[in-house]
Simulated assay, not measured.
Amino acid sequence: MMRRPLVWLAVTVLAILVAGFFAGAKITSDFFANSMPTTRFQVADDRLYVRGEINALSLDQFNEVISAFPWVKVLVLDGISGSSDDETNVKLGYRVRELGLATHVPAGAEIYSGGVDLFLAGVERTIGEGAVLGVHSWSDGIHDGAHYPKDSPEHEEARKYTEDMLGDDRFYWFTLSAAPADGIHVMSDKEVREYGLLTD
């Protein structure tokens, strides 16, 4: 009679240990991803070119560049693989909007995930021919964003950011359904315009 409860207990403990392992692995991975600069900035005339991955250090890097080159008018996203720190990425986006900068993705450049979120921050937003904008759902390391009910507080920061940048939150909900966190959806020209990503 005791076998079933003991088996159930063993399975439950194992599940907790496995979940803890993956959560710990994500924390460790995030720590290393945010311990050194992964974003490269380069100024040319009134354009600030950004490449790499956005992490916890990117906002401080950006502010240092802007302090040294206050005449920058356009943030050129010339290849962004994503973000390892979504909170910093949101702060960076608000800073770009506060400064009144335009954002531009050059012809043939590719921006993904957090790079697309940063693109939204431009007061004017343009893309060159053949530019790639890739989106997907966010993940907390256990569940994708689409797993949570629409009224869940887990959505609020990213949803509000999208609404603040574009005037509504339709694009946020689109990204959750466009692809899972471990996948990517390359937006069509029609989708880019339908969700208001361009200002021209």
Rank of each mutant, 00 (worst) to 15 (best):
Y148N: 03
Y112M: 11
G183L: 02
R159Q: 00
E124M: 11
S81R: 14
M2Q: 10
D117L: 14
A44T: 13
D189Y: 09
D168A: 15
A23F: 11
V65Y: 04
N63I: 12
T103K: 08
P106G: 05
S81G: 08
E110F: 13
D151V: 04
V90Y: 08
S188I: 11
V192P: 01
V50D: 00
H143K: 15
V90L: 14
F69K: 05
G141Y: 04
M1G: 13
G130C: 06
G141M: 02
G24I: 03
W138Q: 01
T88S: 06
G134L: 12
F21W: 15
V50S: 02
N63P: 00
S152T: 05
E129K: 12
D117Q: 14
L166M: 09
Y195C: 09
G134P: 05
V72M: 10
V135T: 03
D169Q: 13
K73E: 12
S113L: 13
E163W: 03
D182C: 01
V123S: 11
A181M: 01
A179R: 11
T28Q: 11
L99S: 07
V192R: 04
I127R: 06
R125V: 04
E154S: 01
M187F: 08
D30Q: 14
V132C: 04
L48V: 13
G79I: 06
V74A: 00
V135C: 10
G130R: 05
F174I: 11
E64N: 13
P37N: 08
D30C: 10
G183V: 00
D60A: 15
V76K: 09
T175Q: 09
D46S: 14
I111E: 00
Y112D: 02
T103G: 10
P106L: 09
L118K: 09
M1L: 12
E156G: 02
L14E: 05
V116W: 08
G122Q: 07
L198C: 07
H155E: 00
L120T: 09
A44L: 11
T88C: 10
E191A: 10
G134V: 10
R4E: 13
P153I: 03
L120D: 00
F32W: 15
K190Y: 12
E53K: 11
H155M: 01
E124N: 14
I27W: 14
V72F: 12
W8Q: 08
V43W: 04
D144I: 02
G100F: 09
T103W: 12
A179S: 14
A25W: 07
I16C: 14
V11T: 07
S29M: 09
G24A: 03
P37A: 07
K150A: 09
F41I: 15
G130F: 05
G82C: 09
K150R: 14
E87I: 15
G122Y: 08
D169L: 13
W173L: 05
A178L: 06
R125C: 03
L77W: 06
P70S: 07
E163C: 03
L198I: 08
R40N: 00
F62C: 04
F22H: 13
G93V: 12
E98D: 15
P153W: 05
Y195D: 01
D164Y: 10
F171I: 10
K150Q: 07
A23C: 02
E191P: 12
L99C: 08
H136P: 03
G196S: 10
